[in-house]
Nucleic acid binder design. Structure first.
Lengths: 202, 202
DNA sequence: GTCTATATCCCGATAGAC
DNA sequence: GTCTATCGGGATATAGAC
């Protein structure tokens, strides 16, 4: 905080805007997030951010990119906590739900922002580690059968995503109990999908 | 269309607004839906709708209510097309995805509008037939075991919902092929969950 | 039941000074 | 790299006339 004059110069506005955006999304939701509000919280003019972000979507994309690194870390940590391939994969489904619940603004930036991924190459690149973690885990379970792994991977992703969306929509109630219960259900569902995967196409 | 003067009197604005809202949502998405735009399409002032809807959310809720009747009809039709309980339940998962894909604006009003269900009792009531259809189908599969039915029902709902959301987000591409493939995957996943349901809590 | 008119507010984005 | 100032647009919602 440079104590120069009454005027505020930030000095490192870009990352600060990402932080502020996360806060605004947390309080208002992605759909009501605005550059103007985020700027105000930093004590900066609404014009300032445009030196760092071409437009609103680019700031949202930066939030999403940060989200993906957190997401990848949580998935990775969950996988490391399990030994058998089946357990690893199931644990990742649980981590998916926990990411959504504990990092709501980041999850929202990723899945409810209406961002067109194809217009943001950095975002596409940021997905790669996450995709790789899931692909690796599911391939282990399927022992290299790529067709089977594809179907099982999509099924588990969809299930985890569904639980995550319904949870963040309040469908299962609020609070830590709902989060824990939903994560457990996602884990159990992943196990059920693995057990019943003969019914999936390959 | 009363050919009175240059002035437009609608006469049946309430349902017409719901139609117009669906169109606007289809083109702009729920988040960018506005009363003003819907009014314009009907050739009516932006003030007129407020005789019929207290506010924007009430119009959105009316769209959602209409959506639920279509949803229930599609789920019911899918169930009727299958004989065995397992097949019925799996078919409903497919119908869930098809509803999302073919009735995007209605699906969006239901799940991406940010509507607080508890503030709209009509909406809560409109959910009942849908819930009943799913509950009945899953109870048949579980032969009356309510605990098991609850877990399996949630799992299948979450899976169908996840596929539906990812499909409408463009994750699987556009077009009829993607819709068909995703519906098939939802059906197969439901079968896998049924087959592996021993892994679910009861 | 709809219209005219209006109050109020917020947003994204740009130009040009410092 | 941030500020001042501003343009142009759109939204919700209300008051009062017809």
């Amino acid at each position: 905080m440079p104590a120069k004059g009454a005027r505020y110069h930030h000095g490192d506005l870009r990352p600060a805007m990402v932080d502020a955006a996360v806060d605004v999304i947390a309080e208002r939701g992605v759909r009501d997030f605005s550059m103007a509000e985020a700027s105000r919280r930093l004590g900066v003019t609404t014009a300032a951010p445009y030196r760092h972000f071409a437009d609103r979507d680019e700031l949202l994309a930066a939030v999403a990119v940060r989200g993906l690194s957190v997401f990848a870390a949580m998935l990775s940590a969950a996988a490391d906590g399990a030994s058998a391939p089946d357990q690893r994969l199931a644990a990742m489904a649980g981590a998916y739900v926990r990411f959504a619940a504990t990092q709501r603004p980041l999850f929202a930036a990723l899945f409810s922002s209406g961002l067109d991924k194809s217009r943001h190459p950095e975002l596409q690149r940021a997905w790669e580690p996450v995709d790789a973690l899931l692909t690796t885990a599911v391939l282990e379970v399927c022992q290299g059968d790529e067709g089977a792994a594809d179907a099982l991977g999509d099924a588990i992703e969809a299930t985890a995503h569904g639980y995550a969306m319904l949870l963040t929509d309040g469908e299962y109630g609020d609070g830590q109990i709902a989060v824990d219960a939903t994560a457990d259900r996602a884990i159990a569902s992943a196990r059920a999908l693995i057990a019943g995967r003969a019914a999936l196409p390959s």
